[in-house]
Structures are given as structure tokens and as C-alpha cells.
Amino acid sequence: MLGLTSLGFIHTLLGLVALVAGALCFFADGAIASRSRAGRVFIWTTALTCLTGFGIFQRGGFNIAHVLGILTLVVLSVAIWAERSALLGRLSAYVATVGFSLTYFFHWIPGTTETFTRFPRGAPLFSSPEDPALQQTVGAMFLLFVIGAAVQVWRLRARRSVPTGQAA
């Protein structure tokens, strides 16, 4: 099964569902939020992807991928809390929006690494997780995240500055 264990297959499937759900959120609403069905699917499958990832040790013992899983769960929890709490006031929407987007970006790091250190079969695009070309690719994806997060923050600010009763 493409070099995947049963757990690896389930983990990969959950991750793909999360990526599709996140993309649907971005295209439909411009952001991931738990108020939409796709947003809830993204949140749950992201959490399950992280949890199933803790049982995968194909690259040795506990490693950077496991740390990324922990970081993803922390950021996801903060984003959910910010979305549902008024404690941060007007900042809540920004923290939630950027947090959910950051977890979407986090999906792409192991997804790109695992996919392109295995494919195309026999001549993978990247030689290892340490391949400089892979690191540049992740850097480019981070730049896209920063641009996307800035656009989302700009849209939130624009919505807040529209007087009551007018459309944004």
C-alpha cells in the first residue's frame, strides 16, 4: 500500500479530508471557522490526523513530525478557544482565523515531505526531509500562508470598519 502501514493509510486519508475541508472553507467563506460543516470537518480531521500521527515511527522514534503534531493540537485548541471566547475581545476573531490557517499550513509540511520523498516512485522529487529544495518549498508555502493570513486579517478589519447596516 505505497509503503504505508494501516495506521499510516488512515492517517493519510484523514489528512487529505482535512485539506479538502480546509480548502472548501477558504473558497466558500475566506477562512476556516467551526460554524460551517466544512470547518467542523477540518477541525476534527486535523485533530485525528495529529493523534494518529503519534503512532507512526517510520523515521525512527519521536521526531520533528511528532512535535509538529503537538504544536498543531495546541494551535488548534487556541483557535477554537479564541473563536468561542470573548476574553480576547476584538482580537478573538483574528487569533481564531490566523490559528486555523496556521494549522492548515502545518498539514502541508508533512504532506509535502512524505509525498515527495516517496514519489515519483524510483525517483522521488526530494531525497530526504533535509533536502534543501524541500526546505525551500516549505519556505515558499510559509510565504503563501503569511500572505493568506494577511488577506484574512485585512478582510476582518474591513468588515469591522463598515458602519452598522451597510454591507462589506
Rank of each mutant, 00 (worst) to 15 (best):
T52M: 09
A31R: 15
Y94C: 09
G60Y: 07
A96Q: 07
A93G: 13
F100G: 04
V75K: 08
L87F: 06
G60L: 07
G122D: 05
T46R: 00
T5L: 03
G99D: 05
R118V: 00
F42E: 08
F145P: 02
T97Q: 01
F105S: 09
W154T: 10
R157M: 13
W44L: 12
L4P: 01
Q152H: 02
L2Q: 00
I70V: 15
G30R: 05
T103A: 12
L125N: 02
F42G: 10
S77L: 08
F9Y: 10
G8L: 12
T46Y: 00
L88T: 01
G30D: 07
G30F: 03
T5Y: 03
L156A: 06
R35Q: 09
V98D: 04
I80E: 13
E83G: 13
G22D: 07
A158I: 02
T164Q: 06
F116G: 14
S92R: 03
A167H: 02
E114S: 12
I147E: 01
G22N: 06
G165Y: 04
F27Q: 03
A133N: 11
G53C: 08
E83F: 06
L91Q: 12
A65P: 00
Q152E: 05
Q136M: 09
F62A: 05
F62M: 09
Q58S: 13
F26T: 01
T164L: 06
A86S: 15
P132G: 07
L7I: 15
L14H: 01
S77Q: 01
L71M: 13
F145E: 04
G3A: 06
P124S: 12
F119C: 00
R59S: 15
G15M: 03
F105N: 07
S6D: 11
S92C: 08
S92G: 15
L71G: 11
P132F: 05
L102P: 08
G89N: 11
R160S: 13
R157W: 14
F105G: 10
T113K: 05
Q136L: 12
A86G: 15
F126M: 14
P132A: 09
P163V: 12
L76N: 10
V20E: 02
T49I: 10
T117S: 02
F57S: 14
V41R: 02
C50G: 08
L76V: 11
Q166C: 00
A149M: 04
M141Q: 15
S36L: 11
L73F: 09
G55C: 10
A38Q: 10
G15N: 05
A28D: 11
W108T: 14
P163G: 13
L91W: 12
A150D: 03
I147T: 08
Q58T: 11
A168F: 13
R40V: 02
Q152K: 13
V162D: 01
F27N: 01
A38Y: 06
